[in-house]
Design a protein around this nucleic acid. Structure first.
Length: 234
DNA sequence: TACATGATTTGCT
DNA sequence: GCAAATCATGTAA
């Protein structure tokens, strides 16, 4: 990957996505999150990245969803207010980042599977030195949580709080033609039709790089006519 | 309390 | 292309 691009416009243009954005089914939120900016503040540093890949997990009917059996200590957050982070541990070593959707009581979340770095590359490489610099070093749900320093301690974090160390901002416009829609990854245990539901949205890295170079700012998010201004930006 | 397994990554063949 | 790594979680007992 090339050096940190200064392609995106100044941070002061970014808007925090409001809670209403998340208060709908995950399969509606997931494609809308493509192109949005994930913003992390850790150790006094700001890390930013564009969301490239998402998956939707929707409701107790969805047999691939952690919440299919009702609330448990792990997935409790999915039943709570939308706009919070659901971060869980799996395979004995990996943390996964999700964004909680839907009204309280209806479990739903969007798994963030890949991001493209904008700012704070140095810090990300420090947090995740193994493959830093290679093309896909943030292309994978466990890779990005490591690079952003996300773990249990950020589970339940409010992504809509301007003071939060993890939040989501408006980003770039991504034409729907370049978004691939496929079945979800790693859920072969799930019965049909859930295993084959096309609830995964992907933009390939090279195409995302091109888009970021063009920096077409996405002015209007579908649900959020009113967005909250960001504060305290460097 | 015990046990099977996973929204994965990596390295080796 | 395949299998090991590694442990919290959930389900069963």
């Amino acid at each position: 990957m090339n050096a940190t691009p200064s392609f995106l416009p100044p941070n002061k243009w970014a808007k925090l996505l409001p809670r209403e954005f998340y208060e709908r089914p995950a399969y509606e939120v997931a494609p809308e999150l493509i192109g949005c900016v994930l913003r992390r503040e850790i150790g006094g540093q700001v890390l930013r990245a564009i969301i490239c890949e998402t998956e939707a997990y929707q409701g107790q009917d969805d047999q691939a969803c952690h919440a299919r059996g009702g609330p448990t200590p792990r997935c409790q957050v999915m039943f709570e207010e939308a706009g919070h982070a659901y971060i869980y541990f799996t395979y004995g070593m990996h943390w996964m980042l999700n964004v909680v959707c839907e009204e309280k009581g209806t479990p739903a979340a969007v798994l963030i599977r890949a991001i493209y770095p904008l700012d704070g590359l140095e810090k990300m490489q420090e947090l995740r030195p193994r493959l830093a610099g290679t093309e896909s070093w943030l292309g994978g749900p466990a890779k990005l949580t490591e690079a952003l320093g996300l773990d249990r301690s950020m589970n339940g974090a409010d992504l809509c709080d301007p003071e939060s160390g993890l939040r989501v901002e408006t980003g770039i416009y991504v034409p729907s033609e370049i978004i691939q829609i496929t079945p979800r990854i790693g859920i072969k245990y799930a019965p049909e039709p859930w295993q084959s539901m096309h609830w995964r949205w992907v933009v390939a890295y090279p195409q995302m790089a091109d888009l970021i170079g063009q920096a077409r700012i996405r002015e209007n998010m579908p649900v959020s006519k009113e967005t909250l201004p960001l504060t305290g930006l460097p």
